[in-house]
């Protein structure tokens, strides 16, 4: 299994642009970006990405709710989900991991290195399986 397609949900446009440059331009992944959880969870079944990167705090539907929606879709239940958050607290991190996230990336993140980070998360994930 190789990491190729990534689905990214983030309400802040600047961050979406930076993530896109960091992952597509620097690492050549295929990236599907969404600015809200609702659209993303509606599209995920058809896209079947290798990994999902979710912003934790979003208006209307936050990261956890989005994750819950996605997990309702039978074919999407085993896609690894990584959270990104600006309020990293141990307790919060624990909450995401308990909800099924495989990793939590702290904002601000090291953009130049994000691709590597996701690759290693993905590898670890599949080694674990």
């Amino acid at each position: 299994m190789e990491l190729n397609t990534i689905l990214h949900v983030e309400d802040d446009e600047s961050i979406r642009v930076i993530v896109e440059m960091a992952l597509v331009d620097l690492f050549g992944f295929t990236l599907f970006s969404f600015d809200n959880g609702k659209d993303a969870s509606a599209a995920v079944e058809g896209l079947q990405p290798d990994l999902i990167l979710l912003d934790a705090m979003m208006p209307s539907m936050d990261g956890l709710q989005t994750l819950a929606e996605i997990r309702k879709i039978p074919s999407c239940q085993s896609i690894p989900v990584v959270f990104m958050t600006a309020r990293v607290q141990q307790s919060e991190k624990k909450q995401y991991l308990e909800a099924g996230a495989v990793a939590v990336i702290e904002k601000p993140f090291d953009a130049a290195n994000l691709g590597n980070e996701l690759l290693s998360i993905y590898d670890q994930c599949h080694q674990g399986v």
């Binding site: 802040d12 600047s14 930076i18 440059m21 620097l26 600006a86 904002k107 953009a111």
Partner: peptide, 27 residues
């Protein structure tokens, strides 16, 4: 505080991300 935490970090994330990518010299 929660707001500061989120609202300050979100633009900072973009700034630092952008600087990062530029500094990496890859682009």
């Amino acid at each position: 505080i929660a707001t500061v935490s989120h609202e300050l970090r979100t633009p900072l994330t973009s700034i630092s991300g952008a600087l990062n990518l530029l500094q990496s010299g890859e682009l």
